[in-house]
Amino acid sequence: DDVELRDGDWRVELKDADEEILRAVEEAIKNGASEQELRELAERLIR
């Protein structure tokens, strides 16, 4: 699993992620995405 989400800690570690993925995830976090939404976003972007 390349995506690590810690309970109560919104730092997201994406291994080997490019800047576009990181920006998309950071934007989702700023917009108040839930953990499930972040997982789905990350899975779509990593593929």
Rank of each mutant, 00 (worst) to 15 (best):
D1W: 06
D1E: 15
D1H: 13
D1L: 13
D1Y: 11
D2Q: 12
D2G: 12
D2A: 11
V3F: 11
V3N: 15
V3E: 12
V3M: 13
V3Q: 13
V3T: 13
E4P: 13
L5S: 14
L5M: 14
L5G: 14
L5A: 14
L5T: 15
L5E: 15
L5P: 14
L5C: 12
R6P: 09
R6E: 14
R6Y: 09
R6V: 10
R6L: 13
R6T: 14
R6S: 15
D7S: 02
D7P: 04
D7N: 12
D7K: 08
D7C: 04
D7V: 03
D7Q: 02
G8L: 13
G8V: 07
G8F: 15
G8Y: 11
G8T: 10
D9L: 00
D9F: 01
D9S: 01
D9G: 04
D9P: 00
D9M: 00
D9H: 01
D9V: 00
W10T: 04
W10E: 03
W10V: 06
W10N: 04
W10R: 04
W10A: 05
R11M: 15
R11A: 11
R11K: 08
R11I: 14
R11E: 08
R11Y: 14
R11L: 15
R11N: 08
R11S: 09
R11T: 07
V12Q: 08
V12T: 11
V12F: 02
V12A: 13
V12H: 09
V12M: 07
E13V: 15
E13T: 14
E13F: 02
E13P: 05
E13L: 15
E13C: 14
E13A: 14
E13I: 15
L14T: 03
L14H: 02
L14D: 03
L14R: 00
K15N: 10
K15Y: 09
K15M: 15
K15T: 10
K15Q: 07
K15D: 08
D16V: 05
D16P: 03
D16T: 09
D16F: 11
D16E: 06
D16S: 07
D16M: 05
D16N: 13
A17I: 09
A17N: 03
A17S: 06
A17H: 07
A17W: 09
A17F: 13
A17V: 12
A17C: 04
D18M: 04
D18E: 08
D18R: 06
D18W: 07
D18H: 11
E19M: 06
E19H: 08
E19V: 10
E19K: 08
E19C: 10
E20H: 15
E20L: 10
E20M: 11
E20Q: 12
I21M: 07
I21V: 12
L22C: 03
L22R: 13
L22I: 12
L22S: 05
L22F: 06
L22Q: 09
R23V: 05
R23M: 10
R23F: 08
R23P: 00
R23H: 10
R23G: 04
R23I: 08
R23K: 13
A24S: 07
A24K: 12
A24H: 07
A24Q: 13
V25N: 00
V25D: 00
V25M: 13
V25C: 03
V25H: 01
V25S: 00
V25Y: 07
V25K: 00
E26H: 07
E26N: 07
E26K: 08
E26R: 12
E26P: 00
E26F: 03
E26Y: 03
E27Q: 11
E27N: 10
E27S: 10
E27C: 06
E27F: 01
E27D: 08
A28R: 02
A28K: 02
A28Y: 06
I29K: 12
I29C: 04
I29T: 09
I29Y: 15
I29E: 15
I29M: 15
I29Q: 13
K30F: 07
K30N: 10
K30G: 07
K30P: 00
K30Q: 09
K30H: 08
N31Y: 01
N31T: 08
N31L: 12
N31P: 00
N31E: 08
G32N: 05
G32R: 02
G32Q: 02
G32I: 01
G32F: 01
A33G: 04
A33E: 01
A33K: 07
A33I: 11
A33D: 02
A33L: 14
A33M: 14
A33T: 05
S34I: 02
S34M: 03
S34F: 02
S34H: 03
S34E: 04
S34R: 03
E35S: 09
E35K: 06
E35G: 07
E35L: 11
E35F: 05
E35P: 08
E35T: 06
Q36T: 11
Q36D: 12
Q36S: 11
Q36R: 12
Q36V: 10
Q36L: 10
Q36Y: 02
Q36P: 05
Q36G: 07
E37M: 08
E37R: 02
E37W: 02
E37G: 02
E37K: 03
E37S: 03
E37A: 05
E37F: 06
E37Y: 04
L38I: 13
L38R: 02
L38M: 04
L38D: 00
L38C: 03
L38Y: 03
L38H: 00
R39Y: 02
R39F: 03
R39L: 08
R39G: 02
E40I: 10
E40H: 07
E40K: 10
E40G: 04
E40T: 10
L41N: 00
L41S: 00
L41R: 00
L41K: 00
L41I: 06
A42Q: 04
A42F: 15
A42K: 06
A42C: 10
A42H: 08
A42I: 15
A42E: 05
A42W: 12
A42V: 15
A42P: 00
E43A: 06
E43R: 09
E43S: 07
E43M: 04
E43G: 10
E43D: 14
E43H: 08
E43N: 07
E43C: 06
R44D: 12
R44E: 13
R44K: 09
R44M: 07
R44L: 05
L45C: 04
L45M: 08
L45W: 00
L45V: 07
L45Q: 05
L45Y: 01
L45N: 04
I46T: 09
I46C: 05
I46P: 04
I46N: 05
I46R: 06
I46H: 05
I46W: 01
I46A: 08
I46G: 07
R47K: 15
R47C: 07
R47Y: 00
R47I: 11
R47W: 00
R47A: 09
R47M: 08
R47G: 14
